[in-house]
Nucleic acid binder design. Structure first.
Lengths: 329, 329
DNA sequence: ATGAAAGCGCTAACAG
DNA sequence: CTGTTAGCGCTTTCAT
């Protein structure tokens, strides 16, 4: 354990700095010594010590990933693990490593972030939750530390982010429903103060405007959380006011709940649309139509954004990832 | 940024080593200087540079986590992310960091492992897949690098591992069914060469023995993979041979498929039991009874095992995590 | 094109 | 109980 740059240097009678140079791909080095050194590296099975390199470079090539730990969302929705594979896939290409940490609260997140940064462990950070008035974002901006956030933040000034076009996604769904002859479309969203929900509602509204159809506030429901029973209750409320031809939701679980109510009450002929396209929907009878948000791609571009930033080749400040409606009707 | 140990030392007129000592909690240090140093640390907002420390210590306090990248299992089954939260939770307590990498094949795994080790990045490794004749395990043993594997490996000699008691889990299920008056219990498992499946089948067999009930090979089906359609077909085969009173499976998806067949053919009164208790089962109508394997706890103990090993306070060579039947009948 | 030497920030003998 | 010194393994001026 432990062949160092010095061993390689001795093996071929050059100085450690020369070896370092050929590893770094320094151009002004003779072809001859270059080959000699490379042979020695192979022969001795030398591998640079990343820690030592990081110390000298003041850069670790590791990315810190901050994950939420609200158990429900984490386990029922593969969003985060898909994001993780996406991040990993880009990072690996460019020789970056990823460290993760789960945080229960915003305070914990702040603590983890500070720990990562203060200990000089990571070169950049990826945030997977974008709260409105987010202290983590504020902190990272203040100290000017490279980071990207997944989900569009409140204030996009000076922040790198990637998100779906939630407005467009919902617009497309509702638009399509109108084109298919639907006339009354209800909306169930959670929770009203999330940016995603606001955007999706706006898409819903815009589609109405474009089609010249009046909004019926009585069939727009905003509930507290992505819970099946809240979808159930929301559907109940909606039916008290009106009988829509279709219902769009901002999460599959809400759609499940809503559909349960319809089944329970034997109400037929109301089309249900989910959101997020979780694996849950495939195994429903009947399967549920839902919007796929391309989580893996979201992660991939988050990773790209951050690494581009770290390597000073930033071209964009954000990426908008496409969604697509997976029709199962 | 960069207040170093030297700055702290100067601030209170001691040597860097003294500062280092109070940070390390070295006992032979006067209360007085200890407090003085601690005050200076606070005042200057000093944080040790982990990289530098790692270099000096030849230990990084980071754990490398090797994850599979078979998309299906990863996304439909929250097993891995639950394991990750468990690992993280123990690691955090002891000041360890976690790096993850997704690997598609055994070759990729080997490559990632070697990379982690050769670059001196990690102190230990957690493997999340245990193949029979696993090259990664072999390699890690050969070079005597600390690691633990999740899932009982073929040969447990000299390896730290944590797993469920799959034998016992299935035994309990089948035993309970017999006690509840069932007489013919079918088995659908995938895939036959996985240790988990073997163990579960043995539990099934043992329960039969204990109850003095003859095994009916005709209603034991082993399929290739954890796929719904294979469960469907398996159920079809079973019914050709016999009509059981209950069916146990080694995965929820198999159970879904099997139940679909029953529904399609309007066969009533056959009890279905899943395995893994994925979130999918809750949202079935009716919900499916399934075996919870406590994935978070599995991760937690894997982490504990590895960290205990790294800190030379190893007490056990493995942990068996309990399972519990979540009854939804 | 290459080498010598200093230094990244910390720890750990060794002295005293 | 505390300071001095010598690294950990690599990169990077600065010479030549």
């Amino acid at each position: 354990m432990g062949v160092t740059i010095k061993d390689v240097a001795e093996e071929c009678n050059v100085s450690p700095s020369t070896v370092s140079r050929v590893i770094a791909g320094n151009p002004r080095i003779s072809q001859e010594t270059k080959e000699k050194v490379q042979a020695a590296i192979k022969k001795l099975n030398y591998h640079p010590n990343i820690i030592a390199r990081s110390l000298a470079n003041k850069a670790t090539k590791v990315i810190g990933l901050i994950l939420p730990r609200e158990v429900d969302n984490l386990f029922k929705n593969p969003f985060f693990i898909q994001v993780m594979t996406g991040i990993s896939s880009y990072a690996q290409k460019y020789g970056y490593y990823i460290m993760y940490t789960f945080c229960k609260t915003e305070e914990e997140e702040e603590k983890s972030i500070k720990d990562y940064i203060n200990s000089n462990l990571v070169d950049g950070i990826i945030l997977t939750v974008a709260r409105s008035k987010d202290n983590c974002i504020k902190y990272l901006q203040e100290i000017n530390f490279p980071f990207v956030v997944i989900g569009r933040p409140e204030d996009t000034k000076n922040v790198l982010w990637v998100d779906n076009d939630n407005f467009q996604a919902m617009y497309n769904v509702v638009n399509k429903l109108f084109l298919n002859g639907h006339t009354e479309i209800a909306f169930i969203g959670a929770s009203g103060d999330l940016n995603v929900t606001k955007d999706r509602l706006n898409g819903y509204i815009q589609a109405h405007k474009v089609h010249g159809i009046e909004i019926n506030e009585q069939i727009i429901m905003e509930v507290e959380d992505f819970k099946e029973d809240l979808g159930y209750k929301a559907m109940k409320e909606i039916l008290k006011n009106d009988v829509p031809t279709a219902v769009v939701t901002t999460d599959d679980l809400l759609a499940f709940g809503a559909r349960s109510y319809l089944t329970d009450k034997n109400v037929d002929g109301i089309l249900m649309v989910g959101f997020n396209n979780t694996p849950l929907v495939e195994y429903q009878k009947p399967a549920l139509t839902s919007v796929d948000i391309n989580a893996r791609k979201v992660g991939y571009y988050a990773s790209k954004l951050l690494i581009d930033k770290l390597e000073n080749k930033l071209k964009e400040t954000h990426y908008i990832i496409d969604t697509n409606l997976v029709e199962r009707w």
